[in-house]
């Protein structure tokens, strides 16, 4: 067994859909003549993921993240290219392969809605041939950590989104998979629930040393969970490296915010040099300055102005991502 969990080279997926003009005339016209549009969801994608890595797959809507997940799990067949997941071609869908993978879909429930989650888990126990002692132990452990012990016998449709997501996670992890694909696992959850899920995933990863690939639009997920990040835009890989490297994608600048006890003079030369953005009647300012100047600048500002509060940005990754989405041309720097 090789040390590589996922290997892709020249991987691509094209979809075809027919175009239809709006309205009745468009409908009638489409009965007789149709024009089709080929759409390239993923193109020439390359990646090598080692066993035990925790990777974030980032990109705007429609970038091709979920298409990649579908190919990695064998749900769809690539149009071209080479792909090996755990040394197998996923779309051959061998049962032994399926026993080693898991897919968590934040936007799609995999549990059966009209029965309690425990019934689904018992079914999955049979599907994955999990020995009874392991099943009981894992169920007990996960339901305790996720605090859903009292929800196991309630019909899934009666549960809140957060509770359901926790149970979805349990369902996917019961068979102790070697590789886990998580497609927006925290979507729609409140902040506490998001944090609980992140904590659980980190803990699970530390214990099991499995490979994890996560897509999310919440940068907090990526910041908290991932060591490595892959950025995908218009179906193409644009960045592949450490999260710390991505944070410096647009340079070594840092964001700094000050809150003042009284309104300040925005024309002061100290502010002008650092891309000042004033808020709340000149009582708050956001600045951008090189990382090397951060310490001296802050000491100077604190001793000069009536500052009541200051902070550096918590998630530089979010700023980088926002700027890239606003201006994808910046990606040509890569």
């Amino acid at each position: 067994m090789s040390d590589i969990s996922v290997f892709a080279k020249g991987l691509g997926k094209n979809f075809r859909s027919f175009k239809k003009s709006p309205g009745l005339s468009g409908s009638i016209k489409s009965l007789f003549s149709r024009s089709y549009q080929d759409f390239c969801a993923v193109s020439d994608f390359e990646v090598e993921i080692k066993r035990g890595e925790l990777i974030g797959l980032l990109g705007p809507n429609g970038a091709g993240k979920t298409t990649l997940m579908k190919m990695f799990t064998g749900i769809i067949v690539p149009s071209h290219g080479e792909l090996k997941v755990l040394d197998r071609r996923p779309w051959d869908r061998e049962k032994s392969f399926r026993k080693k993978i898991a897919l968590v879909m934040g936007q799609k429930s995999q549990l059966w809605w009209d029965i309690p989650a425990l019934d689904s888990f018992l079914l999955l126990q049979k599907y994955y041939e999990i020995p009874n002692s392991d099943f009981v132990e894992r169920l007990d452990f996960m339901s305790n950590i996720l605090q859903v012990k009292d929800k196991l016998e309630i019909h899934v449709r009666k549960l809140s989104l957060g509770e359901r997501m926790k149970l979805e996670l349990m369902a996917c992890l019961l068979h102790d998979p070697d590789i886990i694909f998580l497609d927006e696992p925290t979507i729609g959850l409140d902040l506490i629930a998001q944090e609980n899920i992140r904590k659980f995933l980190l803990d699970y990863h530390a214990r099991h040393k499995c490979t994890m690939m996560i897509t999310s639009h919440y940068m907090a997920d990526v910041q908290a969970l991932c060591e490595r990040l892959i950025l995908i835009f218009n179906g193409k890989k644009c960045f592949d490296g450490a999260v710390s490297q991505f944070e410096k994608f647009l340079g070594n600048d840092k964001e700094l915010s000050f809150t003042f006890a009284s309104p300040q003079d925005p024309t002061h030369k100290l502010w002008n040099e650092h891309d000042a953005r004033w808020k709340n009647n000149y009582t708050q300012v956001d600045l951008r300055l090189p990382e090397a100047q951060l310490r001296d600048f802050t000491i100077h500002a604190l001793s000069t102005f009536p500052i009541t509060e200051f902070s550096t940005e918590k998630m530089p990754i979010e700023r980088v991502m926002k700027e890239l989405m606003h201006n994808p041309k910046l990606l040509t720097r890569v």
């Binding site: 579908k70 064998g74 869908r93 049962k95 399926r98 879909m105 799609k108 995999q110 599907y127």
Partner: peptide
């Protein structure tokens, strides 16, 4: 797209 789940389980 609701059959996706069943394509992942080791039960055809």
């Amino acid at each position: 797209g609701r059959i996706s789940t069943y394509l992942i389980y080791p039960f055809d």
